[in-house]
């Protein structure tokens, strides 16, 4: 039956309202997890706080499991779920630039909004920077359009590349994540920080 709006079980008029409600949930969870604090986020990269790793991977795994189980029960048609297309070159270079932005600015876009929501000035400045960065991209687009569109592989899935079922991929990721969580917890003990 799901996804409800693409299947026209709920009218498309509701889509933006649902986006707003889902956004509230998203913002609430981000803030509760501590993602409104750039020092907590940056702690990931110095080992003193690995909350990013824990929340990010637990979230991705929960959603993965949810999608597969929903599909198994016939609650959702995975063919109608958006899978972001892979453009290998631009994904890697874009990711590298984002990684640099992450460690320099201490936020990613979603977390900067949740920081700004509770009055963090640095979060607001980061958002200002986002607008400038997007503007640079838009104005420079003619120069990078060829690279941006190159290496298109379509909306491929890891399970298709590896030739194993999505369930097995998920189990492997869960095992990898638990190992990383353990390492993260060890790192927090190894490089402890006072409360900030």
């Amino acid at each position: 039956m799901g996804p409800l709006i693409p299947q026209e079980i709920i009218g498309a008029d509701w889509n933006l309202f649902i986006a707003f409600v889902i956004g509230i949930g998203f913002g609430f969870v981000l803030e509760q997890a501590g993602f409104s604090s750039s020092r907590k986020l940056a702690g990931m990269f110095y080992g003193y706080d690995t909350v990013v790793l824990k929340v990010f991977f637990t979230g991705a795994i929960t959603a993965m499991l949810g999608l597969l189980f929903f599909s198994l029960f016939g609650w959702i048609d995975l063919n109608l779920i958006y899978v972001n297309p892979t453009f290998l070159g631009s994904a890697i270079v874009g990711g590298i630039i984002m990684g640099a932005g992450f460690i320099v600015g201490g936020f990613c876009p979603g977390t900067s909004f949740s920081a700004a929501a509770i009055g963090k000035i640095d979060g607001m400045v980061f958002i200002g920077g986002l607008f400038i960065g997007v503007f640079f991209f838009a104005e420079g687009y003619p120069l990078i359009e060829d690279f941006y569109m190159s290496g298109s592989m379509g909306p491929i899935k890891v399970s298709e590349v590896l030739g194993i079922s999505g369930g097995v991929v998920t189990l492997l990721i869960i095992i990898a994540a638990l190992i990383m969580f353990k390492l993260g917890e060890l790192a927090e003990k190894r490089w402890p920080r006072a409360e900030y």
Binding site: F56, G94, F107, C108, F126, G133
Partner: peptide, 20 residues
């Protein structure tokens, strides 16, 4: 923070999406 935002803004467009 501003510099990081600029980088992230640019990178997110090139990489077709941010961390979320």
């Amino acid at each position: 923070a501003g510099m990081g935002g600029i980088l992230f803004g640019f990178g997110s467009q090139l990489g077709r999406g941010c961390t979320s």
